[in-house]
């Protein structure tokens, strides 16, 4: 089963240690075949809204910046528990924050 993990933007500034630990973590997850894809997201982005026939485009950044998604990871795991453990280890590296995790239907 696959899970999409979305991490919300963190307040704390990334330092050298975080980068090193995160690189090692990503390398480990890639080598073990768990991590299929990952990436960071531009905080500003834009928003598409559809109402009736009308589609409007709103450029970011958005005011509620704390809710913005800062990065994603697509993992392939054996169970929900495995997904939880991977998310926990991710948070242990980046510090306080929130991750949203959704199973991806195949």
């Amino acid at each position: 089963m696959r899970y999409l993990m979305l991490s919300k933007t963190q307040d704390n500034q990334p330092d050298e240690k975080l980068f090193t630990e995160m690189a090692a973590f990503i390398e480990e997850m890639t080598a073990s075949g768990v991590l299929l894809a990952t990436g960071g997201l531009d905080a500003s982005g834009f928003k598409l809204t559809s109402a009736g026939d009308q589609v409007t485009v709103t450029d970011g950044p958005f005011t509620e910046a704390k809710e913005a998604i800062g990065g994603f990871a697509l993992v392939e795991v054996r169970s929900r528990e495995e997904a939880i453990e991977i998310g926990r280890r991710f948070l242990a590296i980046v510090g306080d924050g929130e991750s949203l995790v959704h199973e991806v239907f195949s």
């Binding site: 073990s32 054996r78 528990e81 495995e82 453990e85």
Partner: peptide, 15 residues
């Protein structure tokens, strides 16, 4: 609250 027992099992599989 993370279930420690389940985590132990998962960690074993991963590690």
């Amino acid at each position: 609250m993370i279930d420690i027992r389940a985590t132990v099992g998962v960690v074993w599989k991963q590690e």
